[in-house]
Amino acid sequence: MFATEFEYKKASSISEAIQLLSSNEGAKILAGGHSLLPMMKLRLARPTMVIDIGGIEEMRGISVENGTLRIGALTTHAQIADSHVVQEAAGILWETAYGIGDPQVRNRGTIGGNVSHADPASDLPTVLTVVDAKFTIQGQGGITRRGSRTVSAGDFFVGPFTTVLAENEVLTAIEIPVLAENQKAEYAKMAHPATSFAVVGAGVVLTVDNNNVCTAARVAVGGLTPTPTRGPSVEAALVGKELTDENIAAATALIDGDLGSDILGDIFASAEYRRAMAAIELKHAIFHATGLAHH
């Protein structure tokens, strides 16, 4: 309820934010505040300096260019959920944004803040992984230090609440390939009743031909693993198959083998249960994606 004391700085540019971050140990970036402030109020985070990047216009905005959807890191979930550009370019992201938290969380929470926080229960890491998003990261320039770099979503998340971001780096934008007409993408989750966070979330991007045969597949699950987990066995089993109930059920069941042994569990849902639910949520996602949502 009551944060510890800190110094507050408002950065007016990305470089100023990085400068401040580099020169102040214990400094934290504040975007929408919906990841950092709750931690600070419970005194689980005690930054000595808070660098407010909320006013940096160059980090906002949604655009499509050359088949790539570009979203500034400071774009709020609500702006994504209200954007027809996102709806057309990447409907899966548009719908996922609408399912995050609640209206007020969406109004303040930002896509960049969300993924930088890397909460395993968050929806966006899974969705951005499955759509193969690229994260633009800005660091300090010069020979010995990192300048700008791009990291794919699959490489960005390192562990729970841990990313590849160095102490003095800021995520500035996210790029997503615009989905083709024959690509069907969907995200399904079992939401925690208290927070709407994903107990288990599953994202799919399927390329489907005119005979309802899957020609390419990307699937990922989250919520139950420290970072989003791709399902190569599921993908392999889907490709070349007609998307029937039976084939989908058989393929999604293979996610179990892709999950590894590090499964999260808590008092609401054990690791055993979450593991079993991965296939169920994947199945739901594929059913929704392919219009088989009669289950």
């Binding site: 925690h192 208290a194 927070t195 008092i267």
Partner: peptide
């Protein structure tokens, strides 16, 4: 359906906030 206090065996309240103790919405 949703509500319930959980303590661990040491008497630590595990459902100590609204993020763990689910209320009807």
């Amino acid at each position: 359906l949703w509500e319930g206090v959980v303590y661990d065996e040491n008497g630590q309240l595990l459902t100590g906030s609204m993020t763990d103790y689910a209320l009807p919405r």
